[in-house]
């Protein structure tokens, strides 16, 4: 399996779960030039991110190139308990994708 790029903190409190995620990703916009060659560096960024809890999609994001390097996204959803598993799927503009799981604390 590919190396994990998502760092996730999911914490259940009361009747909801707070999720903070950070992806380790360069988010290359395709608008920067290589300083040596003067050529554009091809874009390489995360396009989609989906979070599922118990088979239900709780969050879905479409990202553009204007999202910062190492994207950080935080959201809350109702439900979720300690020990539950979140399934996170991401997809890059290059077509690369992966699924990672994380436990709710």
């Amino acid at each position: 399996m590919a190396k994990k790029i998502l760092k996730v903190k999911a914490k259940a409190s009361g009747d909801r779960t707070k999720v903070k995620m950070m992806a380790k990703h360069i988010m290359e916009s395709g608008q920067r030039k290589d300083k040596k060659t003067g050529e554009l560096i091809p874009a390489k960024f995360l396009q989609e991110l989906k979070v599922e809890h118990g088979g239900k999609v709780v969050f879905e994001a479409s990202l553009g190139t204007a999202v910062s390097k190492n994207p950080y996204i935080a959201f809350n959803f109702a439900g979720g308990a300690k020990g539950d598993e979140l399934v996170l799927t991401w997809k890059e503009n290059t077509g690369a994708s992966a699924t990672e799981t994380v436990k709710v604390k």
């Binding site: 909801r16 239900k56 999609v57 709780v58 969050f59 879905e60 994001a61 479409s62 999202v67 910062s68 994207p71 950080y72 996204i73 935080a74 959201f75 809350n76 959803f77 109702a78 439900g79």
Partner: peptide, 13 residues
């Protein structure tokens, strides 16, 4: 960001 039912409309990035 798509917000399905049950998810709060409260997103930070």
């Amino acid at each position: 960001f798509k917000i399905p039912a049950g998810t709060e409309a409260d997103v930070s990035t």
